[in-house]
Design a protein around this nucleic acid. Structure first.
Length: 285
DNA sequence: GTCCAGGCTCTTT
DNA sequence: AAAGAGCATGGA
């Protein structure tokens, strides 16, 4: 099969493996060649890496300029960022050393909303499976590669066809009603996604929490992984464990934690959170 | 069988 | 404002 490819040379602080396995994106899969295949913004790409050379199969220069450059957060200097985070404590230093190829992706806002509604009180393999089913049932067929069919994440309009029972059959459990309501509210623009991108963190979080199934943690994930809000500091069960055992936090209320995070880790605390999350999740597994 | 997973909503203090 | 119960589902 003839597929175009785009090569980026001299890429620092970039590991497609760490990015794909870091729990911020749910549509990346390892292939036989050590590369990763992912779906985003209606396209399928395969990424393989030879040290600081990143090869994106299924993309051309125009795609890269329009989609993937921003998706992979290529305009942020992670070397500089890491310099600013290093030397604070042994835990973060270890986490950065372990996951220095992580990047915070800039994903589709709508897709992140539904994906992280599904993530609540759930585990990553099952989140992935549910999203796969949803895409296959309600998204567009994109391509077939090595015998596997790939589908886009459905638009609000496409997903609005699904009833609550239909959604239950996608394996999302009791979150079926959350997804159903949220889809309707977004489709009717009772919550306008175009406005959220430009809001400050507080306002954006408040707006997102109007959606059923979106609380503080889910809102922070959405804003960090799709809106460049690096001051968002999502606190899940893992991060809570880190904060109480390593950073001596007794109270883990959203307000307390966010205040601590910004004061201690700085304006890019959300990215620090991601290094810590990736690190602790790979310790005992 | 119990416990847990990138928590939230709803109810009760 | 804060704390607790209940929630689908599958894997350990």
């Amino acid at each position: 099969m003839m597929r175009s490819e785009f090569v980026i040379e001299g890429v620092k602080k970039f590991s497609i493996e760490q990015i794909a396995e870091s729990g911020q994106a749910f549509r990346w899969e390892k292939d036989q060649n050590g590369g990763y295949t992912g779906v985003a913004f209606g396209k399928v790409i395969n990424v393989i890496q030879e040290k600081d050379k990143v090869i994106i199969k299924g993309a051309n220069k125009e795609d890269h300029q329009k989609i993937w450059k921003n998706y992979f957060d290529m305009d942020r200097d992670y070397g500089q960022l890491i310099k600013g985070l290093k030397g604070k404590d042994i835990h973060l230093d270890s986490a950065i050393l372990f996951g220095e190829g992580i990047r915070i992706l800039n994903q589709d806002l709508w897709e992140m909303i539904i994906s992280f509604i599904i993530s609540g009180n759930n585990n990553i393999p099952r989140i992935k499976k549910s999203i796969d089913i949803i895409c296959e049932k309600y998204g567009d067929f994109i391509d077939e590669i090595d015998g596997k069919k790939y589908y886009s994440f459905p638009s609000p309009s496409q997903l609005s066809i699904a009833t609550v029972d239909d959604l239950r059959k996608c394996g999302v459990g009791y979150r079926d009603a959350y997804i159903h309501k949220t889809t309707k509210v977004i489709l009717e623009k009772q919550v306008d996604l175009d406005l959220i991108q430009n809001m400050n963190l507080e306002d954006a979080r408040k707006e997102l929490k109007k959606l059923t199934g979106v609380g503080d943690k889910v809102a922070d994930c959405i804003l960090l992984f799709s809106c460049k809000k690096t001051t968002a500091f999502p606190v899940d069960t893992w991060v809570k464990k880190i904060l109480t055992t390593y950073y001596g936090l007794k109270k883990t209320s959203v307000k307390e934690v966010n205040k601590f995070a910004i004061e201690y880790f700085g304006e890019d605390c959300g990215i620090a959170q991601q290094y810590l999350f990736y690190y602790i999740r790979n310790q005992n597994l």
